[in-house]
């Protein structure tokens, strides 16, 4: 077998202009799916051709919370569970910016669950990327509100018995206008979905199922993250517009992915301006222009 080595390069990776290279290599484990998800977001930002000075990334705490520190954009690493309210404040203060919340399942729907549903209810124009690895990874593998029934974690050594959240259903029933789910293996579709969600006016959610090799896979004896990627390849089914009640994830069962919801609703600022214009008439100056353009 002829073995040819490639050029040893210290050349630039094409996405380096979007990364803080002084912090790379990142801390994520080998076969973790988070790096792939960050790469997909960088690709979506490239596709959109928007001014990167007008994009802000907000993260909470956890493995996924590190994303804000690795992206060379306006970024903010907030307190645990509070990524969404910080992003909401940022959006209200600067409606011209695209605000992206990039955080994990434990941060967004457990500790920040209340913020998550109320921001969706108000239809604040932000994009939420929720990376779901089914476990609290950074703190050592405790059971999360997304851990499937029967899956093991450090705090449920004989298997989990609590019903997990169905995150797309939670977001859609709370008032989100765009809901999609992909696995870390669906890189191209995920990047397209990120681009759609960022362009969408209103609360948009993309759930990304990502492998956690060190805790979820190891505690459940599922192999490495690569084995989980193979599992996603064999067991994920693309079903756009699926009934959200049917897409809950069971332990090692079929994962339904796709774009589930894409509707139009007035955003928070639209509703504010419409309501106040109705009351104050011509005296009212609309805030934020209503379309986020000024």
């Amino acid at each position: 077998m002829s073995v040819e080595t490639t050029k040893q390069v210290s050349d630039e990776h094409p996405m380096e202009h979007l990364l803080r290279m002084d912090r790379i290599p990142h801390i994520w484990c080998s076969t973790c799916g988070l790096g792939t998800t960050v790469r997909a977001l960088a690709e979506a930002l490239e596709q959109l051709e928007i001014d990167h000075d007008k994009v802000a990334v907000v993260s909470g705490i956890g493995c996924t919370g590190r994303v804000a520190g690795y992206l060379k954009l306006d970024s903010f690493h907030t307190t645990h569970g509070r990524a969404v309210p910080f992003a909401m404040g940022l959006h209200i203060a600067r409606p011209d910016m695209k605000v992206i919340v990039f955080s994990g399942d434990g941060d967004l729907v457990s500790i920040g669950g209340n913020h998550f549903i109320h921001t969706a209810r108000r239809n604040i124009d932000i994009t939420v990327i929720c990376v779901n690895n089914f476990i609290y990874a950074m703190t050592g593998g405790q059971v999360a509100p997304t851990t499937p029934i029967r899956a093991r974690s450090k705090t449920t050594p004989y298997g989990n018995y609590e019903t997990p959240f169905n995150i797309p259903l939670l977001a859609a029933s709370s008032g989100a206008v765009y809901v999609a789910r992909w696995t870390a293996l669906h890189v191209r579709r995920m990047a397209m979905s990120f681009a759609e969600a960022i362009s969408k006016r209103g609360f948009s959610l993309v759930e990304v199922i990502a492998p956690c090799s060190t805790l979820y896979a190891r505690l459940n004896k599922l192999g490495t993250g690569l084995s989980l990627m193979k599992f996603y390849h064999d067991n994920s089914e693309i079903r756009h517009g699926a009934d959200l009640n049917d897409i809950a994830i069971d332990y090692q069962s079929k994962i339904v992915v796709g774009k589930f919801l894409d509707v139009e609703k007035p955003t928070y600022l639209d509703a504010l301006n419409h309501h106040n214009a109705g009351i104050f008439g011509d005296k009212y100056k609309p805030y934020g222009g209503g379309n986020g353009s000024d």
């Binding site: 380096e16 990142h26 973790c32 790469r39 890189v187």
Partner: peptide, 12 residues
């Protein structure tokens, strides 16, 4: 595909 799948930005 290797480039978009690589979690460590190590191949292009």
């Amino acid at each position: 595909l290797c480039e978009v799948l690589c979690p460590d930005f190590a191949i292009y």
